[in-house]
Amino acid sequence: MNGESREGLALFGGVLGVPPKALKSPLPASRERGDTGGERTSDHMQRQLVAGRPDAWMRLEFNPIPTCPGCQEPTATRAVLDVLEEMGMEGEAILVPGVGCHSLIPFMLDLDHVMSAHGRPPDLASAIKRVLGRGAADRALPLVFTLQGDGDCIAIGAGSLVNAAARSENITVLMLNNVNYGTTGGQMSPTTPLGHATSTTPGGRTPDYGYPVRVPEMLATFQGVAYAARGAVNTPANYQKTRAYIKKAFQTQMAGRGLSMVEVLCSCPPDWHMTPLNSLKWIEAHIIPQFPLGEFKGP
């Protein structure tokens, strides 16, 4: 992917079947944060940007983001980008996505990334951190983080995750937990809560299929894990807390204290067979009780 350009991203139009033509975005093509843009409203007021697309989010001029309506993975990604911007670390950040719905997100981010095989991002991230973070004089320490789904992280990738924790790798693992396999159509994953119906547990998950895995709690038992937390983005308050967790995780990594991990609960309305708004209620009522929010191991 040499010389990748923004124009190339219009190619997603081919994927989504939308003709790339004159749909004009009302947003200015480029702007600076806090820039008034010279635009004045009629009553001599000026506009100041409060919250927009994060700068690292590349514009897809002709298309929406290729996720389902109400999917919160881009929301979780926004929290990550906000933190990167706050820390001024966008230039040193290397993102390692796995395979799942979130695999598409890095293509839209203006960050260096290496896509991994299903479940293996901790392996790649370990190697990248050790190769680039050798204390060479000509570069700052890289900020290496993975972006994984729940299936990627703890089903197919459990071995990689556990052993990265055992080796106390200085990386950050971000797990977007939508409690099922979203990409393949909503099958049971190890994090599916009891009672949650999926296409492979049509009557709802029962203890016969085991119990949901609580990853931050599990990782907190490792001596080599420095930070483990679980957040959600279903309300503005939870969003802000999650953002704080991610920031702490990144700071833990930059301080070289060991592996840091943040799980983010995300909604998946189509595979839960719910409207987006009902899915937020479902998170509040059925998922958070089985996956308590908070920090489980901290600096």
Binding site: L27, R40, Q46, Q48, G52, T67, P74
Partner: peptide, 23 residues
């Protein structure tokens, strides 16, 4: 804007126009 998963919203605060602002 935070809660929009699709980053479709930009939120602005309206402030008194500065005299130094470009017109």
């Amino acid at each position: 804007a935070w809660m929009c998963p699709d980053h479709a919203i930009e939120a602005y605060r309206l402030v008194e126009a500065q005299t130094t602002a470009h017109s």
